[in-house]
């Protein structure tokens, strides 16, 4: 294995691919949290997305239906969370945790009959360019459409939050739901929408795993990525671009340390496995030092129950 330029290109391409579920789930959760809702059910919504995407693919043999279905399943399961926290005013943290436990259990049950079934090849775009251009080819081309979407998403999210009216409303609700309500904004509706959007993105993140990244169904295949996504949002101080950076660092070091393990570096394996977590936190803490900016990005009402005076 020589460290030539094309190998590095392929390495970067694979790092990008491994970051996709984190980017998708974290971007979705970021919108949810910016509206003041703390949904700890990311892992659960992802795993539900993974199994429903895979199951729909097997049943309908149609990848489009599978992808859309996985997002819908994310929406449905997040609707449970939304109903409990927004309409029945339950505690966000407890409800989110319950959602994750529920999601993992339900996916294992639904997935029983799908274990061991081979996945379907997901179409990749620009595959000819991938081969013909050295270094940049494997980085820029030959990926699934979901990857391109994922990499555009943080920028779209940033634009949405900073430049659009709706983004302004979401931030306002996250800042002060009482003021927003007094301004005639339907806080509950805004929060529902943000929760459902977060659910859809988590569902898509799960489907990416079971349909594209490792096309098969394995029980508990999200393997804690939902929790990483949650942590990313916080450590990225609710900034979409920093979420992207964090996800790439995490994906990058995960892949690199695997290579390091394979090469046989004289560093304890346990330390190498812990490295992605450590580095992501360190880098994000370092790039988010400006306490001013953090204050401006932090949804002040995060996790607090809002109810309207009658």
């Amino acid at each position: 294995m020589s460290l030539d330029i094309s190998f590095i290109g392929i390495l970067i391409g694979s790092i990008m691919a491994s970051s996709v579920p984190l980017i998708l789930a974290a971007s979705g959760e970021l919108i949810t949290e910016r509206s003041g809702v703390l949904n700890l059910g990311v892992e659960g919504m992802m795993i539900i997305g993974a199994i429903s995407g895979f199951a729909l693919m097997v049943i309908t043999d149609n990848l489009f239906i599978a992808i859309v279905g996985s997002m819908l399943s994310g929406v449905i399961i997040s609707l449970i969370f939304g109903f409990l926290t927004q309409s029945l005013l339950t505690n966000h943290v407890a409800t989110g945790l319950a959602l994750t436990i529920f999601g993992i259990g339900l996916s294992a049950m639904l997935g029983k009959n799908f274990v061991g079934i081979p996945g379907k090849e997901f179409p990749i775009l620009f595959s000819s360019l991938r081969e013909s251009i050295p270094f940049f080819g494997p980085i820029l081309f030959g990926h699934s459409i979901v990857l391109y979407f994922a990499f555009a998403l943080p920028f779209l999210t940033n634009y949405f939050l900073k430049k659009t009216k709706l983004g302004l409303v979401v931030r306002a609700v996250g800042d002060s739901p009482v003021s927003a309500s007094n301004q005639g904004i339907n806080v509950i509706l805004v929060r529902y929408c943000c929760i459902l959007y977060g659910g859809a993105m988590c569902g898509l993140a799960g489907a990416y795993l079971s349909l594209i990244y490792t096309p098969q169904w394995i029980e508990n295949m999200t393997a804690g990525r939902g929790w990483i996504a949650l942590a990313l949002v916080v450590f990225a101080t609710w900034s979409p671009i920093k979420v992207l950076i964090g996800a790439l660092i995490f994906g990058g070091i995960t892949i690199l340390q695997l290579h390091m393990q394979a090469i046989g570096f004289r560093i304890p394996v346990q330390f190498l496995s812990a490295l992605p977590y450590l580095m992501t936190i360190i880098v994000l803490v370092v790039i988010s030092r400006d306490s001013r900016k953090i204050k401006l990005n932090t949804p002040t009402s995060l996790g607090r129950i809002f109810y309207k005076e009658k």
């Binding site: 302004l168 306002a172 002060s176 009482v178 927003a180 990005n297 932090t298 002040t300």
Partner: peptide, 10 residues
């Protein structure tokens, strides 16, 4: 009833 983290114009 203001949003502290948003700008005056926002």
């Amino acid at each position: 009833n203001l949003f502290e983290t948003l700008s005056v114009f926002e």
